[in-house]
Amino acid sequence: MHTMLTKERERLPVRVDVATPAGSARRARRRIRPSTLFALAPMAVVVGVVYLGAMAWTVRLSTTSSKLLPTYDFVGLDQYERLFANARFLVSLQNMVVFGVLFIAACLVLGFLLAVLIDQRVKAEGLLRTIYLYPHALSFIVTGLAWQWFLNPELGLQRAVREAGFESFAFAWLADGETALYALVLAGVWQSSGLVMVILLAGLRGVDPDLWKAARVDGIPAWRYYLSIVLPLIGPMIVTATVLLAIAVVKLYDLVVAMTKGGPGIATEVPAKFVMDHLFERANVGLGTAAATVMLVTVLAVLTPWLYARYGSTSGRPA
């Protein structure tokens, strides 16, 4: 009973955003004051005009034949036809999915393990935490360049090991179209798993230590304790980390530019780079905005079910 209570107490502050039955009843009774509306107005205008306006403009431009400068004719879905006949764009979409799955999974697993490790009251915790979080303070450009040098077969690791006497050593992920994408995942995970660690560590610190004692008394092994008790408790933290990582996946651009420039060939092209190249370098605003629209639709397709599960149902807490 005691543990049940602490569990309930623990959960509430963590899940403030969850619409509990009590919460929604309170909300229904509360009236929106004019001052609240007034305070929210500037943000609403920014969202409406800048974000939604720019989105609508982008979608509109994707139905025109715009090249360097926007024109406002109407060519229907011509740009989309060209887009989905374009080998490079299709490869880009596929790369985003492969990168996304591997990157998010690896970051979550590694970040969780690091967080658990640090949660063992190790010595020099502050130092370790800083070291693991440090990569995240670097921009993707710096990360990409550093890894590009490190993985370059003629300059980096491969050469160093060969010069040390191991002539047959081969590690040339970046030079091979089949493996270059995994090199990107490697660099991305190196950069972002520290962030996941910090978020999950905050979650771990919110777990009642009594739970651990109770588990010890019952003779539950440590791995089982973390898997079956702690993981469900820090669920909201995992969702937060996943959303942050997913946004990084869709936005993925600078890491690719710094590390591979989309190569070898088109092996590591991503949609954001396709959009940038066509909007600017190739002076093809129509095709670029069509690709941007496809990205928008992709994001909505992923987010809508999640938003619906989270805020759409009034019946209570999501899984």
Binding site: R88, G263, I266, D277, H278, E281, R282, A283, N284
Partner: peptide, 14 residues
């Protein structure tokens, strides 16, 4: 045009 140069670039690099 930049558009043609870009499209040809994609082919050459592949």
């Amino acid at each position: 045009s930049s558009d043609l140069v870009g499209a040809v670039d994609d082919v050459i690099t592949q």
